[in-house]
Write a protein that binds this DNA or RNA. Structure first.
Lengths: 85, 85, 85, 85
DNA sequence: AGTCGATTTTTGGGAC
DNA sequence: GTCCCAAAAATCGACT
């Protein structure tokens, strides 16, 4: 292992900093949204809903409906091919 | 597959819808941010930066410095114990 | 940040080594299985099957059938609650 | 959802079944190994080791040492460029 | 090189 | 509070 430390010229360093700044900003916003989601979940729970179920619903809704139909169709085709129906 | 269909009373259904709507909206915004992050990463990469390393930088910046030092120290301890140093 | 390096007593170090050895051994076996899977996939492909589809089938088959039915039922319940059917 | 059902000729179906059987068998074995790994991890934890760090050790042991040194060096370079050192 | 799927890591909720 | 389990995200790698 060499102990050589490569250096980055100032201009490139500045560019790097711009990228990390932009990324940190986006990450911060994302974290806020995640907190918001947690809050809504907690509120739903306090109104008697099962968080676990709500999450499942969201998961399903996020899936493209076509995806769901596709998956189902493929499974049927496979079952038919193997005489499982 | 059973044909049992649970039902939900209309008022509860409406409340459920409000929650899932809010959550889906937040999820959508989160997805947009994740796409933005991916875009910035791609741009950084096209300018010659190593995305893998940039990700590590972001991880470091997001973490509590003390936590990082602790983990690093423990890793060194384990490596020493295993004769890896 | 302290520069203190904790040390592990020899007996504990040996125990640690036993764990890492066992884990590395299991990881090696897992890697072999993953390679086997890749080989079978390649063979299936050479016999005209669409690997992408085969992977999807495996994914579906790995899911507990009950899980699939559950998911479907939940989706139906939700749709019904929101008048989407 | 359409009611279209694709069909597969019997011989192809049988071949498909052979492949999925072999794959499911391999997947099952892989799952067992993954469970074993989890068990060992749990045991190590119950003996006072930090699982997170053990995982890092395993990652290091699986990786090419040169790769690790390279990545480490580049990370240091970036950190220096950002004034994080 | 870019997309996609698989794997690993992280997170969040529940139990005790 | 801490530990465990399940779900989601980040990372990694294969194939095109």
């Amino acid at each position: 292992m060499t102990d050589i430390m490569e250096t980055i010229d100032p201009q490139t360093a500045q560019l790097l900093k711009q990228y990390t700044d932009r990324l940190m900003n986006l990450e911060r916003q994302k974290q806020e949204l995640m907190n918001d989601i947690k809050d809504v979940m907690a509120e739903a729970k306090s109104n008697g809903f099962d968080i676990k179920i709500i999450r499942k619903i969201i998961t399903i809704l996020k899936k493209d409906p076509n995806k769901i139909a596709e998956e189902e169709a493929l499974l049927e085709t496979y079952k038919a091919a193997l005489g499982l129906i």
